[in-house]
């Protein structure tokens, strides 16, 4: 078995009386794509925010590559090699696409100077297929390109682990296809990926394993097959059996 890249240990995050994340534990291994799914409001994005340091957990620990990073601010977390994208894209609007990616490279895990960062940014833009747009203002891109820019910036930081928060949402089928290629290529580079996704077919086919959250709690964990056949998941998460059937069919297709 490969070594653990990320250990989420009994993490709880409360907002006032509300437990957004409730005692969640799982381990993720190097080189793996782990899918994080669950209905809206299940606490997925909150968990991401705890992992990368936007929020401090109320209880529990986050261990990244053997190091306890609980409570570190996000900029320290990036420096250690853990990058993320946002569900609601946050481009630096008045800066060009390449400048956005240079920011990612400069302040990422390697703490590069401007010149080397520019080289890295150019490579990443080509890798991700944004090189055509590199001198445009980030604010002017369409949503699909903005999502790719999010990934490019995170990647430019040279992470060991990448958190992708719904990078497929809002894309049309062609764009989804392109993004899936990108994700596969990232995995092939040996970067571990933890991703939140609502498009079932995509997440089932990409992920090695899946963790299901519901009402802040971990409901199930396992391979896509195991999870899709778990009656608890079908009942609680999918709600109606029809939906479950459809997903199983998608799986087989």
């Amino acid at each position: 078995m490969k070594s653990a890249i990320l250990e989420v240990k009994s993490v709880t995050k409360a907002f006032g009386g509300l437990l957004a994340v409730d005692d969640v534990t799982f381990t993720m291994f190097e080189g793996e794509i782990l899918g994080l799914i669950g209905p809206n409001g299940a606490g997925k994005t909150t968990l991401f925010n705890v992992i990368n340091g936007v929020y401090k957990p109320t209880k529990g620990h986050i261990v990244f590559a053997g190091q306890d990073i609980t409570g570190l601010p996000p900029y320290e977390v990036v420096n250690k090699g853990l990058s993320r994208t946002h569900q609601i894209v946050k481009p630096l609007n008045e800066m060009t696409v390449i400048e956005n990616v240079v920011v990612g490279a400069c302040f990422g895990s390697e703490n590069l100077g401007l010149e080397p960062a520019r080289r890295v940014a150019n490579e990443v833009l080509e890798f991700i297929g944004l090189d055509k747009y590199k001198d445009e203002l980030a604010g002017k891109l369409n949503i699909a390109l903005k999502k790719r820019l999010e990934v490019a910036r995170a990647l430019a930081a040279n992470p060991k682990l990448l958190l992708l928060d719904e990078v497929l949402a809002g894309l049309n089928p062609t764009e989804v296809g392109k993004m899936l290629d990108v994700i596969n290529k990232i995995r092939d580079r040996g970067i571990s990926i933890l991703m939140i996704e609502h498009i079932m077919q995509a997440i089932m086919s990409l992920s090695n394993r899946i963790v299901v959250l519901n009402f802040g709690r971990k409901l199930a964990e396992g391979t896509p097959d195991e999870v899709a056949n778990d009656p608890q998941v079908i009942e609680a998460y999918l709600g109606d059996p029809e939906m479950a059937k459809r997903i199983l069919e998608e799986e087989e297709a």
Partner: peptide
Amino acid sequence: RSKFGLGLFAIREDEDAAIVLGVKA
């Protein structure tokens, strides 16, 4: 023209995004 300036401009555009990108805001 400096890296410091680049970090500042990132903060100007979106401070939360800048922090997540590694800028010690």
